[in-house]
Simulated scan of single mutants.
Amino acid sequence: MSSDLATRIQQRLSELGKSARGASLEAGLSDGFIRNILTGKSTSPRGDTLEKLAIVLGTSEAWLLRGEPAEIENSDRRERTKGFSPVIIPGEQLVSNDKKLPVYAAARGGDGHHIVTFDPIDYLKMPAVLQDVKGGYGLLLTGDSMVPAYWPGDTALVNPNLPPARDTDVVLYHTPQFHQGEEEAIIKRLVGVNDREWTLEQYRPERVFKESRADWTVCHRVVGKYNAR
């Protein structure tokens, strides 16, 4: 471990009590990603990957690369993000070798919306969080309105039977008719709810906004995800 980047990553891992593998998975990367940096097998990450590492390690991109002091606003961003990451489902929680979980495609629409086609594009192994859940499904995502929680190509794991709950990720639909055509949907974080409206949050661009429950009548809970990477 000779590079300054590797030294700083190891410092933060030690301070946080995290393992290289655990931090890699928390960032939505391959389990050996950070280990390869520490052992000199990979070069410095850039762009979105560096940003994800900085968030998980509780610092800034500038500090990781050059040792510059972490900016205050990065700490604020971590506070907003730390409760927002869905559970990443590891391989040992795949409970069946049979591929029974239907995956629907969510094509990018306008204003952060998705157009979901209820004709499975694939079937995946069933994760423990959806075992014996009637109507459970995966949603293959595009667009970047929910980065860093969900990146394009990630699959959200959805339980349609759980009630709405604050501080969870949800998929809202107008009037879904599953397995029949297409439906407009949005995947956001549920900040609050009352009889009239949903209060939702997204991250790119950052905003909190309200939508009418009369317009978005159905709420499905996201219980985890499969990473595209």
Rank of each mutant, 00 (worst) to 15 (best):
D111C: 01
V116S: 12
L172A: 11
L172R: 03
A156L: 01
T117Y: 10
V147N: 10
K134F: 09
I186P: 11
P163N: 02
L139P: 05
Y150M: 12
P160L: 01
P164G: 11
I115N: 11
L172E: 13
V171G: 04
T175I: 03
N159Y: 07
T175M: 07
N159W: 01
I187W: 04
V158T: 05
V116W: 04
N161V: 04
D167A: 05
G143R: 09
V170L: 05
I187Q: 07
D154W: 06
Q131F: 08
A165Q: 11
H113D: 15
I115M: 13
G112T: 01
V191I: 00
D132H: 14
G112C: 01
E184N: 11
Q177S: 14
D169R: 05
N161D: 11
K188I: 03
D122E: 13
D111H: 14
Y150S: 14
V133M: 12
D111G: 14
V133Y: 06
L124E: 14
A156D: 02
G153A: 08
A149F: 03
V158N: 05
I115Y: 07
G138H: 03
I121L: 12
G136F: 03
E184A: 14
D144F: 00
P152Y: 04
G192Q: 07
A156F: 00
P148R: 02
V191R: 08
V191Q: 06
T168G: 01
E184T: 15
L157A: 09
V158D: 09
M146D: 02
V158Q: 04
L130S: 14
A156N: 02
K125D: 12
T117D: 13
P163A: 02
G153D: 07
L172W: 06
F178M: 09
L157D: 10
G143I: 01
P127T: 15
D132F: 13
D154F: 00
L190M: 13
P164W: 04
H174V: 13
G143E: 04
E182R: 11
P163E: 02
V129D: 02
